[in-house]
Write a protein that binds this DNA or RNA. Structure first.
Lengths: 100, 100
DNA sequence: ACGTTATATAAGTAAATACTTATGTAAAAG
DNA sequence: CTTTTACATAAGTATTTACTTATATAACGT
């Protein structure tokens, strides 16, 4: 698949846009995403994989946790989408389901 | 649906990106799109409708023909996608299936 | 008016996508 | 070593999307 199309498909979903909004202010761990989206943990992992495969986000492992962040180098299209998103601060270490 | 998500969904498809590439140099009529994409005419009309509903393209009726063009006022995201596309000149009045 | 041409809409089907539950893996804690 | 925690992967299901064929509409030519 063409990279542009892959990136657009990765971006064209409300849940994944929310994930990106959460990451606008820095790294977020998977467990926090689960709380924010209200879907199952596997579903979140699958969404994150789509964003990662498209080169939009990067991951960092720390112990059993995994932190995701927006990639530094972005194509103009992805950059424009991220700019359009309002940063969501309500997704950092809520701590109900995890203790990252 | 959120406008950003609607626009991204409209853009996240190879056929629709091709339609936009065809329109980069100006108006194109539906019959020419049919030749370019190699799908049925109703399928093309449905794709064009998605782009129109998202505010990405405009239509102009002339007799029995209908011409589509890229909208003048575009959001930064749509603008970035269009810029990324290489204009496709091979879709202007081929004339095999229509005579526009 | 009638038939033809260009396009749109409707209805049905096939394929892609996004979830679910169940299971696997890897690191930390006991 | 065993259990727990955090996440990923697998498999199955439900929803969405993109096509198909059939039909409707609207303008033009005769």
């Amino acid at each position: 698949m063409d990279l542009l199309e892959q990136q657009l498909k990765a971006l064209a979903d409300k849940n994944r846009l929310t994930l990106l909004a959460c990451m606008k202010n820095g790294e977020v761990c998977v467990c926090d995403f689960v709380e924010v989206l209200g879907i199952s943990q596997p579903a979140v992992s699958q969404q994150l994989k789509k964003l990662k495969d498209a080169g939009i986000i990067l991951e960092r492992k720390k112990g059993t946790w995994k932190y995701y962040r927006i990639a530094e180098q972005l194509s103009p299209v992805v950059e424009a989408v991220i700019n359009q998103l309002e940063a969501d601060d309500g997704c950092r270490c809520g701590g109900n389901t995890c203790s990252c």
